[in-house]
């Protein structure tokens, strides 16, 4: 797993609620059997003016100038600011891979869909939940200030604005440690292999039909 510690990054706003994973990475790109190659197609239908298909050279495609990620002032952003229920819909982890490959390391929103939230940690992408009114304030600040950067500190669990205001956020302790240390959670689970086997032996007795 990728390490996440502290990030000072340019913020790009995406002012919509319920951004679904179909929008983050449309279905035609899920035909790939690889884990990479999705960054160019992040938000494909919003980002480009033409219809994207796998294998097209993204650098040559016409960009939608109205889409925030395409605006020069947000070039190189690593923090995405969004509204509630970010990442809803399909379980496709390709959405996280696409964000990560594009260069987004942290998404800040008032709420996330559960599967997307879990998937994020697996690729070292930190989802940060902040109160709706704080997110609102950040939207105003980012639009008013060019070169707006935030500091996201996982260890301290804070998001700090350019004028020094620090907003605390919650993160599950286990996930935090995994991210800070870059642990492989399959490896961690396999340390409990004996317990898993003992569980199986007991369950096979109790409910053998579960093992058909």
């Amino acid at each position: 797993m990728k390490v996440f510690n502290q990030l000072k990054g340019l913020v790009v706003p995406l002012d919509r609620a319920n951004i679904d994973t179909d929008a983050i990475i449309p279905k035609q790109f899920l035909k790939s059997i690889k884990r990479t190659g999705f960054g160019g197609n992040l938000f494909d239908a919003w980002r480009y003016l033409d219809h994207g298909e796998p294998g097209m050279a993204c650098a040559k495609r016409p960009l939608n100038p109205d889409f925030s990620l395409n605006q020069p002032r947000y070039e190189g952003a690593s923090i995405l600011l969004a509204r509630e229920n970010f990442g809803c819909g399909s379980s496709r982890e390709h959405a996280v891979w696409a964000l990560d490959e594009y260069g987004i390391r942290c998404v800040i929103a008032p709420s996330f869909a559960d599967i997307f939230f879990t998937n994020s940690f697996k690729s070292g992408l930190l989802p940060v939940v902040l109160d709706t009114h704080i997110v609102d304030q950040l939207f105003h600040e980012v639009e008013a200030t060019s070169g707006y950067r935030l500091i996201v500190d996982l260890h301290a669990q804070t998001v700090t604005t350019p004028d020094g205001a620090a907003f605390p956020f919650d993160v599950d302790e286990f996930r935090k440690q995994c991210l800070l240390n870059g642990w492989d959670d399959i490896g961690l689970t396999l340390r409990h292999a004996d317990e898993i086997r003992a569980y199986e032996i007991r369950r096979r007795e109790e409910a053998p039909w579960l093992f058909a």
Binding site: E93, I115, N119, K122, T189, I196
Partner: peptide
């Protein structure tokens, strides 16, 4: 019954378990 991402698919394949809250 619940949906999972690809990393969790691999996790279940390898360990028959998921890390859950």
């Amino acid at each position: 019954a619940f949906g999972i991402g690809t990393s969790e698919v691999e996790h279940v394949m390898a360990t028959q378990c998921l890390i859950q809250k």
